[in-house]
């Protein structure tokens, strides 16, 4: 009885979780113009339309560039700050830590509105640059927190040994600290890319002509339901899952003992 209930609950909740994704993917293969039952496919025409859509492909490229660059900046800034706060005694370090984490607790909408207000006043036009600056703001706390938590004593000793052997601080960072933190660095970078790639409201308020993918998809929604939106959504899903599986098999694979 308990066992049956357990499996029934699992089946029910997994169906709930999968339902929208299943519907999304199924009707991306719809042959007619509306992604609602009855299913009239399978057809690949909407995928062809997606791949032939210049605006959409440009937005995809923009998203990729913004995600990669802003994540790289967030990772470097986060790494240096984490190194300083984990290794040195700094006056006001509690306050600094709090400040670096703070953007995590504020809604993206508020961060976006603040940046928009300031950028308006200094004359920085809505652009991919403005969006990228915003994405560093949201990802820096994440990178900092992950790397700060990962800096342990074992690492400290290796750094000290290198320093005793006469390595300069830059060499220590580059040859000892960074390589020893490879896994958490990869995790932080990957998470940042994911968040930036999928971020909507900052990109929506801070771009105008060159937009990112979520903003482009948003403007597609205004013309109503279309299998084309299903197709681009399914493509994004497919790519994300592939990257995830690849990472799971390489970087995040736990060494078997």
């Amino acid at each position: 009885m308990g066992r049956l209930l357990t499996w029934a609950y699992m089946a029910l909740i997994y169906s709930f979780i999968f339902l929208p994704v299943a519907v999304l993917v199924l009707f991306s293969f719809q042959d007619s113009r509306l992604p609602v039952p009855p299913f009239t496919g399978p057809s690949l025409r909407w995928y062809a339309q997606v791949l032939g859509d210049r605006d959409l492909m440009a937005a995809l490229g923009n998203s990729l560039i913004v995600a990669l660059i802003s994540s790289a900046v967030a990772l470097v800034l986060g790494f240096l700050a984490a190194h300083a706060l984990a290794r040195y005694r700094l006056p006001g370090s509690v306050l600094i830590r709090g400040l670096l984490i703070a953007p995590m607790t504020v809604s993206y909408l508020i961060i976006a509105l603040g940046l928009l207000t300031v950028f308006n006043q200094i004359g920085l036009r809505p652009s991919l640059l403005a969006t990228g600056i915003g994405h560093v703001v949201i990802n820096l706390p994440l990178c900092f927190a992950i790397l700060y938590a990962a800096m342990g004593d074992q690492q400290k000793n290796a750094e000290r040994a290198a320093r005793d052997l006469g390595a300069s601080e830059t060499r220590v960072l580059w040859h000892i600290s960074a390589p020893m933190l490879m896994a958490p660095m990869a995790a932080a970078f990957f998470l940042s890319v994911t968040f930036s790639w999928d971020e909507f409201i900052i990109a929506f308020l801070l771009t105008r002509f060159d937009v990112t993918l979520p903003v482009e998809i948003w403007s597609m929604l205004r013309s109503g339901l279309s299998p084309k939106t299903n197709a681009i959504g399914s493509l994004v899903f497919l790519v994300s899952i592939s990257v995830l599986i690849l990472l799971e098999l390489t970087i995040f694979r736990k060494p078997r003992r």
């Binding site: 999304l24 909507f200 998809i217």
Partner: peptide, 13 residues
């Protein structure tokens, strides 16, 4: 799993 579709697309779905 559905985390990996985009946020906008998930609401649309």
């Amino acid at each position: 799993l559905p985390f990996w579709t985009s946020y906008v697309v998930r609401s649309y779905a």
